[in-house]
Write a protein that binds this DNA or RNA. Sequence first.
DNA 1: GTTATTGCAAACAATTTGCACCCAC
DNA 2: GTGGGTGCAAATTGTTTGCAATAAC
Lengths: 138, 138
Amino acid sequence: MKPQRTRSQQRILNLLSKLNRAISAQDLYVELRKGGKSIGLATVYRSLETLKLRGVVQMRKRPNGESLYSSVQKDQHHLTCLNCGESIPINECPVHQLETELQTSHQFKIYYHTLEFFGLCDRCGVDHTLEKHGKANG
Amino acid sequence: MKPQRTRSQQRILNLLSKLNRAISAQDLYVELRKGGKSIGLATVYRSLETLKLRGVVQMRKRPNGESLYSSVQKDQHHLTCLNCGESIPINECPVHQLETELQTSHQFKIYYHTLEFFGLCDRCGVDHTLEKHGKANG
DNA sequence: GTTATTGCAAACAATTTGCACCCAC
DNA sequence: GTGGGTGCAAATTGTTTGCAATAAC
């Protein structure tokens, strides 16, 4: 076992905790380069993969396939529009007890969970043509 | 508005309800071709997209980026291993009330939700080398 | 007959992999 | 000096798009 962090992993963790929000690997890469750090995109992916397996970082996937990463912390879930992709954060989370039960009943070490509601937002719900009027960047 | 289904959409819905489980677009395509239906992969994707926007079909993403589609089914959630990709179905679902509340408070038409727990399964949890011993098909 | 749907192949985007170089120990 | 970590570029994979042919009404 090598519990210690590599240079890249540390940089990524620093940025993630500074940002305190979910960000894509690509954006993370851009931000790190902006910050003057010489880092490769592949390294960003490799580091995130390792951190994810250690339970330090969590991932969720947007409907468009992009992965968003953040440090594991919160009951920060989402309400996502299937049409425009807008993602509204919500704070409620009613699954703590279930999580504890599952860890025991399934012998599974749970690092985090994702809870996401999908449907049509206010604007898309009334727009019967369902044209994309919003951008899938939220 | 065109509420009626196209030929392809109907074929896909038939297969989805016969299967009664989540399946990838690619596999859906293969199955349909096996069944003697002449259909294109693009059509499969386009049909699934439409059905998804109508709230007839739901989608979840596997950690590897692949999308799994199924007819909207209530309360079928998962416990997924970050290492081997194994996905164990669970039946509990403690979010009904929250869902109802959110629809009202956010003026959002919710079609379905996904709840997924991530961590390390029994086997991967004890295997400190974290090698992939399982296949990401569950 | 007109319009939406379909199939194919090319295009796309996010991610992964091969490999030589470099850094930490 | 050795072995893992890193960066680059090429490869891979799931998905989307352009367009001509076709089916539906």
